[in-house]
């Protein structure tokens, strides 16, 4: 885990006049799972949106500082749609697009250009298997993705995020609307995916970061308080007292 996959330096983000990130710097290494924890409103989602440049779809945002992907500043990349496909994104609430299960997974490959049916078939099967959903839906790929249960939809979202063989997978509090059993299944999926890609796991469950992450970053009010090996963050003496308090649930 030597190679730097993402380098964030002095990142500042404002929504209008309201600051959301105040000068954040850290690196993410290739093939690690980086856990990102912190209370609500601390800028975690904003950080993910800067990386895949969906933040610029919100009016009135300003971004300063740089985010580099494989050494290249994402804001100088001209093919922003290509950039977004390099980064799989799983949002807090499961969002089955109002399309068939098949079309949901085939969505990103199709946006990149025309594909052969057989090629798409393979992608759909591979991703649904990776997301541990294949067995439940293989006989009804034509039915609407929105008809699946919440837990199934979240796995569909993961399958969709994997459809373009992303280098980076970002998960934003994926378990917030998912039952514990599904959460556990998805966590197992993430463990197998870490060999293939770099994973940014924003989570509202600190124990989830403890279970999965190689390193963990603690955000508070738009600042990165501390980033270190997960063992250190969850030990009795992390560098920062507020980290200890948050991790041990006596915060506020």
């Amino acid at each position: 885990m030597e190679k730097k996959k993402i380098e964030v330096s002095e990142l500042r983000v404002r929504y209008g006049n309201k600051p959301a990130l105040n000068g954040v710097s850290f690196d993410v290494y290739e093939n690690e799972i980086l856990g990102i924890i912190g209370p609500a409103q601390s800028g975690k989602t904003t950080l993910l949106k800067v990386i895949n440049r969906t933040l610029e779809l919100t009016r009135g945002t300003t971004v300063e500082g740089t985010v580099k992907l494989d050494g290249e500043d994402v804001h100088t990349i001209t093919d922003v749609y290509g950039l977004r496909r390099r980064i799989g994104m799983v949002l807090p609430l499961p969002v089955g697009l109002p399309l068939s299960i098949y079309d949901n997974v085939a969505f990103a490959p199709r946006t990149a250009g025309p594909r052969k049916k057989s090629e798409l078939d393979n992608i759909v099967e591979r991703c649904l298997k990776q997301a541990a959903l294949w067995d439940e839906v293989k006989d009804r790929l034509d039915s609407l993705g929105t008809k699946l249960s919440g837990g199934q939809q979240q796995r569909l979202t993961i399958a969709r995020a994997l459809s373009h063989q992303p280098e980076i997978l970002c998960l934003d509090e994926f378990s917030i609307a998912v039952d514990p059993v599904t959460t556990m299944r998805i966590e197992e999926v993430l463990k197998t995916l870490r060999t293939e890609m770099t994973i940014l796991l924003v989570t509202n469950l600190v124990q989830q970061a403890k279970r999965l992450a190689n390193r963990t970053a603690f955000f508070l009010n738009g600042a990165l308080v501390e980033i270190d090996a997960t063992d250190v963050i969850f030990s009795d003496n992390p560098a920062n007292q507020s980290t200890y308090d948050y991790v041990n649930g006596n915060f506020g």
């Binding site: 969906t54 977004r84 994104m89 969505f107 969709r160 373009h164």
Partner: peptide, 8 residues
């Protein structure tokens, strides 16, 4: 948001 994140 979901479609945009998929590069649409």
């Amino acid at each position: 948001e979901a479609a945009e994140a998929l590069g649409a």
